[in-house]
């Protein structure tokens, strides 16, 4: 564990909690892409199957359980409890255009042609594009609630910090995972546009609104 990964995991946890809390408190999922949240639930489910096969540490196991349970709770709130507030018209990204190519790529490019490893690879590739429906929805509505932008900032920051974690681990441990690094780079690049808007608008107290 290193400082970058520690802050990154904390930022990821913060993002998940911020979103769950926002939906629960406001009793509304307006402006939230349910499709992205379903993709994140799939990401965690396919990545953390090793909960059943290997134990790494109490931290590792407990965080995985928290991530999985919060992501399913979020999907439940969006599609069941507060379904009336779900904005399906603007959450119209065709996720099959993400899942199918990512699934194919995971079968073609992986570290080991074993089921758990292919599922892990699928999860890594899927996570890198899972935020697209949410970003697409914001571009369609032309705006985002400030709390939603904080959620997105924490979510984007987490994988950006993982890039520094991989630099650290390569330098100090010789650890190197090309699949995770490339996917993490793609994932972080997808947030750049949002990061720019977040820093120039939200941090200056303005509302995030895209030129309609």
């Amino acid at each position: 564990m290193n400082i970058f990964r520690g802050i990154a995991d904390f930022s990821h946890l913060a993002a998940i909690i911020i979103l769950l809390h926002k939906i629960w408190k406001s009793r509304s999922c307006a402006g939230i892409s349910g499709k992205s949240q379903i993709l994140f639930a799939i990401v965690f489910t396919t990545r953390y199957l090793d909960l059943l096969t290997s134990f790494i540490s109490l931290y590792n196991t407990s965080m995985k359980v928290i991530y999985i349970s919060c992501s399913y709770a979020t999907v439940y709130l969006i599609y069941m409890k507060f379904r009336a507030t779900y904005d399906g018209n603007h959450d119209s990204f065709r996720v099959e255009f993400l899942v199918v190519p990512v699934g194919g790529l995971a079968v073609l490019i992986n570290h080991d042609f074993a089921l758990l490893e292919i599922l892990w690879t699928f999860s890594i590739y899927l996570e890198s594009v899972a935020i697209l429906p949410q970003l697409f929805m914001i571009s369609k509505t032309g705006e985002a609630e400030t709390i939603t932008t904080h959620y997105l900032f924490c979510l984007g920051l987490y994988r950006a910090l993982y890039l520094f974690n991989w630099i650290w681990r390569f330098y100090f441990e010789g650890f190197f995972d090309m699949i995770a690094i490339v996917a993490g780079l793609v994932q972080t690049v997808l947030y750049c546009d949002f990061f720019y808007l977040y820093v120039t608008k939200v941090l200056k107290g303005k509302k995030l609104s895209l030129p309609a």
Binding site: D50, K64, N165, F176, M178
Partner: peptide, 10 residues
Amino acid sequence: ADESATHDEL
């Protein structure tokens, strides 16, 4: 590439 057989990251 020295990716870990068991993935120790979240």
